[in-house]
């Protein structure tokens, strides 16, 4: 699935989510934010979190770090791999 591959790329490189989150599907071991293997997430909740941020997590949408399309793709990837 091309969208999942692109999502993985955003997670690990473009946005650097991997630096702060554990997610088996991405091979990441960051320990600042919640371990994404331990939470069930809907795509809507991930889009919301990535767009507006929380605490030390940047507001990738509000601060225009990622485009709306990139946020949608990375959220699709996370919602489909988190909590598995």
């Amino acid at each position: 699935d091309a969208k999942m591959i692109k999502g993985l790329e955003i997670f690990n490189e473009t946005a650097g989510c991997a630096g702060c989150h554990v997610l088996k599907a991405a091979g990441s071991e960051g320990n600042v934010g919640p371990n994404l293997d331990t939470v069930d997430l809907t795509i809507e909740s991930v889009v919301e979190m990535v767009t507006y941020g929380l605490g030390v997590m940047p507001a990738y949408g509000e601060e225009e770090i990622l485009t709306k399309e990139e946020i949608e793709i990375v959220s699709y990837f996370v919602a489909n791999t988190a909590g598995k």
Binding site: G19, C20, V22, S28, E29, N31, N35, T38, V39, G83
Partner: peptide, 13 residues
Amino acid sequence: TASVVPISIVNAN
């Protein structure tokens, strides 16, 4: 590094 201590959690929620 951000990944100082690998987390091992079996389950949640």
